[in-house]
Protein backbone atom coordinates (compact mmCIF):
# COMPACT_ATOMS: atom_id res chain seq x y z
CA UNK A 1 0.00 0.00 0.00
CA UNK A 2 1.44 3.31 -0.98
CA UNK A 3 1.35 6.32 1.33
CA UNK A 4 -1.98 8.00 1.10
CA UNK A 5 -2.15 11.73 0.56
CA UNK A 6 -3.32 13.61 3.66
CA UNK A 7 -7.06 14.11 3.25
CA UNK A 8 -8.16 17.66 2.73
CA UNK A 9 -9.92 19.23 5.71
CA UNK A 10 -13.47 20.04 4.90
CA UNK A 11 -13.83 23.75 5.34
CA UNK A 12 -17.45 23.89 4.33
CA UNK A 13 -18.73 24.52 7.83
CA UNK A 14 -16.25 27.29 8.47
CA UNK A 15 -18.74 29.87 7.27
CA UNK A 16 -21.36 28.50 9.66
CA UNK A 17 -19.03 28.78 12.63
CA UNK A 18 -18.05 32.29 11.65
CA UNK A 19 -21.70 33.21 11.24
CA UNK A 20 -22.47 31.91 14.69
CA UNK A 21 -19.72 34.00 16.26
CA UNK A 22 -20.73 36.99 14.17
CA UNK A 23 -24.30 36.83 15.42
CA UNK A 24 -23.08 36.53 19.00
CA UNK A 25 -20.98 39.68 18.73
CA UNK A 26 -23.69 41.50 16.83
CA UNK A 27 -26.10 40.86 19.67
CA UNK A 28 -23.73 41.73 22.48
CA UNK A 29 -22.36 44.91 20.91
CA UNK A 30 -23.61 48.14 22.38
CA UNK A 31 -22.40 51.19 20.58
CA UNK A 32 -23.48 53.76 23.11
CA UNK A 33 -21.21 56.70 23.69
CA UNK A 34 -21.16 58.01 27.22
CA UNK A 35 -22.56 61.47 27.44
CA UNK A 36 -23.20 63.77 30.34
CA UNK A 37 -23.05 67.20 31.87
CA UNK A 38 -19.49 68.04 32.81
CA UNK A 39 -19.17 70.21 35.88
CA UNK A 40 -16.37 71.43 38.07
CA UNK A 41 -16.69 71.16 41.84
CA UNK A 42 -15.39 73.97 44.02
CA UNK A 43 -12.16 73.13 45.85
CA UNK A 44 -12.54 71.91 49.43
CA UNK A 45 -12.49 74.49 52.20
CA UNK A 46 -10.68 73.64 55.41
CA UNK A 47 -12.57 75.93 57.76
CA UNK A 48 -15.61 78.03 57.44
CA UNK A 49 -14.58 81.40 56.11
CA UNK A 50 -15.30 83.93 58.80
CA UNK A 51 -16.27 86.83 56.64
CA UNK A 52 -17.57 85.52 53.36
CA UNK A 53 -17.44 88.19 50.67
CA UNK A 54 -20.71 90.03 50.51
CA UNK A 55 -22.63 89.68 47.31
CA UNK A 56 -25.35 92.17 46.59
CA UNK A 57 -28.80 90.75 46.23
CA UNK A 58 -29.26 92.30 42.77
CA UNK A 59 -26.28 90.34 41.47
CA UNK A 60 -27.68 86.99 42.54
CA UNK A 61 -30.12 84.93 40.55
CA UNK A 62 -31.60 82.72 43.19
CA UNK A 63 -32.88 79.29 42.21
CA UNK A 64 -34.43 77.13 44.92
CA UNK A 65 -35.74 73.60 44.46
CA UNK A 66 -37.69 71.98 47.26
CA UNK A 67 -38.31 68.33 48.16
CA UNK A 68 -41.48 68.28 46.04
CA UNK A 69 -39.44 69.32 42.99
CA UNK A 70 -41.02 72.78 42.88
CA UNK A 71 -38.95 75.61 41.56
CA UNK A 72 -38.71 79.06 43.11
CA UNK A 73 -36.76 81.57 41.06
CA UNK A 74 -36.16 85.05 42.48
CA UNK A 75 -39.16 84.53 44.74
CA UNK A 76 -41.49 83.46 41.95
CA UNK A 77 -42.69 79.89 41.49
CA UNK A 78 -42.07 78.92 37.84
CA UNK A 79 -41.80 75.81 35.68
CA UNK A 80 -38.53 74.26 34.54
CA UNK A 81 -39.37 75.08 30.94
CA UNK A 82 -39.50 78.79 31.83
CA UNK A 83 -36.19 78.74 33.69
CA UNK A 84 -33.97 79.09 30.65
CA UNK A 85 -35.58 82.32 29.47
CA UNK A 86 -35.53 83.80 32.97
CA UNK A 87 -31.87 82.90 33.45
CA UNK A 88 -30.93 84.31 30.04
CA UNK A 89 -32.63 87.59 30.79
CA UNK A 90 -30.69 87.84 34.05
CA UNK A 91 -27.32 86.85 32.54
CA UNK A 92 -27.60 89.39 29.74
CA UNK A 93 -28.92 91.96 32.20
CA UNK A 94 -29.49 95.61 31.50
CA UNK A 95 -27.15 96.98 28.80
CA UNK A 96 -26.62 100.22 30.75
CA UNK A 97 -26.29 98.46 34.14
CA UNK A 98 -28.59 101.01 35.78
CA UNK A 99 -31.67 98.87 36.38
CA UNK A 100 -31.70 98.13 40.11
CA UNK A 101 -33.25 94.70 39.64
CA UNK A 102 -30.53 93.55 37.24
CA UNK A 103 -26.89 92.82 38.10
CA UNK A 104 -24.22 95.50 38.34
CA UNK A 105 -21.49 95.99 35.81
CA UNK A 106 -17.79 95.95 36.42
CA UNK A 107 -15.32 97.46 33.93
CA UNK A 108 -12.98 94.72 32.76
CA UNK A 109 -10.15 94.60 30.23
CA UNK A 110 -10.76 91.89 27.69
CA UNK A 111 -8.44 91.17 24.77
CA UNK A 112 -10.02 92.00 21.38
CA UNK A 113 -12.87 93.90 23.02
CA UNK A 114 -11.04 96.44 25.15
CA UNK A 115 -12.40 97.79 28.40
CA UNK A 116 -16.06 96.91 28.65
CA UNK A 117 -18.64 96.50 31.37
CA UNK A 118 -19.07 92.92 32.45
CA UNK A 119 -22.06 91.87 34.48
CA UNK A 120 -21.36 90.67 38.01
CA UNK A 121 -24.03 88.00 37.69
CA UNK A 122 -24.01 84.91 39.88
CA UNK A 123 -26.51 82.09 39.69
CA UNK A 124 -27.14 80.57 43.07
CA UNK A 125 -28.68 77.12 43.15
CA UNK A 126 -29.93 75.53 46.29
CA UNK A 127 -31.77 72.26 46.50
CA UNK A 128 -33.18 70.08 49.22
CA UNK A 129 -31.85 66.66 50.16
CA UNK A 130 -35.19 65.27 49.06
CA UNK A 131 -35.09 66.81 45.56
CA UNK A 132 -35.05 64.17 42.86
CA UNK A 133 -31.89 63.78 40.82
CA UNK A 134 -33.92 64.10 37.64
CA UNK A 135 -35.16 67.56 38.66
CA UNK A 136 -31.67 68.61 39.71
CA UNK A 137 -30.26 67.61 36.31
CA UNK A 138 -33.06 69.47 34.54
CA UNK A 139 -32.29 72.65 36.48
CA UNK A 140 -28.55 72.28 35.91
CA UNK A 141 -29.20 71.65 32.25
CA UNK A 142 -31.36 74.73 31.84
CA UNK A 143 -28.82 76.95 33.61
CA UNK A 144 -25.93 75.65 31.51
CA UNK A 145 -28.16 75.97 28.45
CA UNK A 146 -28.94 79.59 29.30
CA UNK A 147 -25.22 80.43 29.48
CA UNK A 148 -24.55 78.56 26.25
CA UNK A 149 -27.32 80.42 24.43
CA UNK A 150 -26.20 83.82 25.71
CA UNK A 151 -22.62 83.10 24.65
CA UNK A 152 -23.79 81.83 21.29
CA UNK A 153 -25.76 85.01 20.59
CA UNK A 154 -22.83 87.17 21.68
CA UNK A 155 -20.35 85.26 19.50
CA UNK A 156 -22.65 85.59 16.50
CA UNK A 157 -23.13 89.30 17.06
CA UNK A 158 -19.51 90.24 17.77
CA UNK A 159 -17.52 87.81 15.68
CA UNK A 160 -20.08 86.41 13.28
CA UNK A 161 -19.18 82.87 14.25
CA UNK A 162 -20.85 80.20 16.32
CA UNK A 163 -19.31 78.83 19.50
CA UNK A 164 -18.86 75.50 17.78
CA UNK A 165 -16.91 77.12 14.96
CA UNK A 166 -14.72 78.89 17.51
CA UNK A 167 -14.11 75.69 19.45
CA UNK A 168 -13.12 73.67 16.43
CA UNK A 169 -10.96 76.49 15.11
CA UNK A 170 -9.30 77.24 18.46
CA UNK A 171 -6.72 74.49 18.07
CA UNK A 172 -5.28 75.90 14.86
CA UNK A 173 -5.99 79.59 15.01
CA UNK A 174 -4.91 81.96 17.74
CA UNK A 175 -7.59 84.45 16.78
CA UNK A 176 -10.33 81.88 17.29
CA UNK A 177 -8.88 80.96 20.64
CA UNK A 178 -8.81 84.59 21.75
CA UNK A 179 -12.34 85.16 20.53
CA UNK A 180 -13.54 82.09 22.40
CA UNK A 181 -11.90 83.17 25.63
CA UNK A 182 -13.25 86.71 25.19
CA UNK A 183 -16.79 85.35 24.94
CA UNK A 184 -16.22 83.31 28.06
CA UNK A 185 -14.87 86.34 29.90
CA UNK A 186 -17.82 88.51 29.00
CA UNK A 187 -20.28 85.88 30.21
CA UNK A 188 -18.42 83.78 32.78
CA UNK A 189 -20.36 80.75 33.93
CA UNK A 190 -20.90 81.32 37.62
CA UNK A 191 -23.20 78.70 39.05
CA UNK A 192 -22.83 78.55 42.78
CA UNK A 193 -24.31 75.62 44.62
CA UNK A 194 -25.21 76.13 48.23
CA UNK A 195 -25.19 73.33 50.77
CA UNK A 196 -28.54 71.58 50.51
CA UNK A 197 -31.19 72.09 53.10
CA UNK A 198 -32.83 69.22 54.85
CA UNK A 199 -36.45 70.02 55.42
CA UNK A 200 -38.17 67.48 53.22
CA UNK A 201 -37.41 64.40 55.28
Amino acid sequence: MARRAAPEINAGSMADIAFLLLIFFLVTTTMDVDTGLTRKLPPPIEDEIENPPEVKERNVFQVLVNANNDLLVEGEPILVTQLREAAKEFIIGDPTFTDASMPEGKPTDIPLLGRIMVSKQIVSLQNDRGTSYDMYIKVQNELVGAYNEVREEFAQRKFGKSIQQLETGAEDSELFEQQLSAVKKVYPQRISEAEPKNVGE
Binding site: G36, L41, P42, P43, P44, G130, T131, Y136
Partner: peptide, 24 residues
Protein backbone atom coordinates in the same frame (compact mmCIF):
# COMPACT_ATOMS: atom_id res chain seq x y z
CA UNK B 1 -32.71 61.71 45.96
CA UNK B 2 -30.22 64.54 45.95
CA UNK B 3 -29.15 63.83 49.54
CA UNK B 4 -27.00 60.86 48.63
CA UNK B 5 -25.73 62.55 45.47
CA UNK B 6 -24.69 65.58 47.52
CA UNK B 7 -22.87 63.34 50.01
CA UNK B 8 -20.93 61.80 47.13
CA UNK B 9 -20.10 65.24 45.76
CA UNK B 10 -18.86 66.43 49.14
CA UNK B 11 -16.63 63.36 49.48
CA UNK B 12 -15.25 63.95 46.00
CA UNK B 13 -14.46 67.51 46.99
CA UNK B 14 -12.63 66.29 50.08
CA UNK B 15 -10.68 63.87 47.91
CA UNK B 16 -9.88 66.78 45.58
CA UNK B 17 -11.50 65.04 42.63
CA UNK B 18 -13.15 68.13 41.21
CA UNK B 19 -13.74 67.14 37.62
CA UNK B 20 -17.07 65.40 37.60
CA UNK B 21 -19.67 64.48 35.08
CA UNK B 22 -23.34 63.76 35.55
CA UNK B 23 -24.15 60.94 33.21
CA UNK B 24 -27.20 61.83 31.12
Amino acid sequence: EMGIVTDVKQELRKANALKINYST
